[in-house]
Write a protein that binds this DNA or RNA. Structure first.
Lengths: 240, 240
DNA sequence: CCAACAATGTGTATTATTTACATAAAAATG
DNA sequence: CATTTTTATGTAAATAATACACATTGTTGG
């Protein structure tokens, strides 16, 4: 044993941890949807009097023997009735005064789902979809959390195929482009957009066409996640 | 007030929060350095008997009225004596059994510093630099945390100018390239690497040359962070 | 039924970026 | 002063991004 290691080892880890301070821990889900060519987010009215009338993200405390991902999954299941939803941890928020009831640290999750895939069953607290673009004040630091998750999504959607979670399984290229334009807040050239996606070669032509559309229907495609996973590359190239 | 809002408002937020379960919360810092053309990480021996001989990240509990960023800053200051160090939150880790002493959720931070800028003053618990590449077992889930932060760094360094935090203020292009090659584990063409960085136009020629090098000395450059901040662009382009 | 309309679907020329590759010049070494 | 090592730079070819135009298909309304 080297001379420098003269530290007494701690034998009782449980005793050690008991001496640690504790905090209240929650998860908050930023649940995005896409409808009417607009990015939407699912919110409820806050039930805290301090924030009366303000909109709030869907969240809950993390249970005693529950992982963060599981807590977020649970929130999603309880509120939308859906399992297997796209859900990723984004960031922890820890401002000391972020909750009027005391010290509450929260971990934000970003969730993407197809609005049409589920009906809002329980609409307690006026649970419904809001247009992200026009959303202003919110309860707690939830606007800050929403902004962080939206930025995360904007960046992420350019590099990873997660936008498809916001669309039906079969979608037209126009729908896909509308999605990107709405999220990134840009206008894209239709021809170059198609070229780009076709050249990636992950879109499968289903042979089906759009229905209930009052003009020439477009082809419907599916995203081939398997193929994408297999051909995923690490190196992008230095650029900033 | 709409008919759907029949929820009783909670008036006493403090009382509400008191009913929440609590967890122990820590931060763990993955402190990267660069030396001998290798990416290094600063570790100590775990002082838990369970993990005797295993290496551990530098971490600490989050204090009662302390934000996560502040806690990470404090860990860094206490261990390296340095302030104003590059430090970013990466991810929360919450496996229920990740700590033998009980439920401890941790938030991982990635830190980048120039090894030469500080001397390891306090070398308790054999605090020293380890080569990332050859590191195997670690205490707790710290290997998993390290891997996550390393992946984060690999991706981040391609899109943001954070690598410079690992180098002295004035550096040669060869040093910069060595850094990228070490972190990304690739070989890069020297000519194209230079061309790329010069075309970004953020490198300032200091007019100085390398010293103490036993061959033709290279020019020393500085990174112009101000200019970068001003010209930062949002749109990258869809590609995955 | 047919003309007007609206959106889909495709191609090409231009420009910019990335990649591959070779040689000259400067300093250190013996 | 010749040798060695590393810096420094340029150019051609391939690839990718952009800008842009027209034919096609189905819908709608007269």
């Amino acid at each position: 044993m080297p001379a420098s290691q003269k530290v007494t080892m701690i034998q009782d880890a449980v005793q050690l941890v008991k001496g640690y301070p504790q905090v209240h821990l929650t998860v908050d889900c930023v649940i995005f949807g896409f409808d009417e060519n607009k990015l939407k987010v699912l919110l409820i009215r806050s039930d805290l009097e301090t924030y009366q009338g303000k909109w709030s993200l869907l969240g809950d405390v993390v249970h005693e023997n529950e992982e963060l991902d599981a807590a977020a999954d649970r929130v999603l299941l309880e509120r939308t009735g859906m399992t297997n939803v796209y859900l990723k941890q984004v960031q922890a928020f820890s401002r000391v005064d972020r909750h009027p009831g005391g010290r509450v640290v929260t971990v934000a999750y970003c969730s993407l789902l197809n609005i049409r895939d589920h009906e809002l069953q329980i609409t307690d607290n006026e649970l419904h979809w809001h247009t992200v673009k026009t959303l202003k004040e919110m309860a707690f630091d939830h606007k800050e959390i929403l902004d962080a998750c939206y930025s995360w999504l904007q960046k992420r959607i350019q590099e990873h195929p997660l936008g498809f979670n916001l669309l039906p399984e079969k979608f037209s290229l126009r729908e896909l482009q509308n999605l990107y334009e709405a999220i990134l807040n840009v206008e894209l050239d239709r021809r170059n957009f198609r070229k780009k996606f076709f050249s990636m070669d992950f879109l499968v032509d289903t042979g089906e066409l759009e229905t209930d559309v009052k003009h020439r229907p477009g082809k419907l495609y599916q995203f081939n996640f398997d193929k994408y996973e297999k051909s995923k590359r690490k190196w992008i190239g230095i650029d900033f």
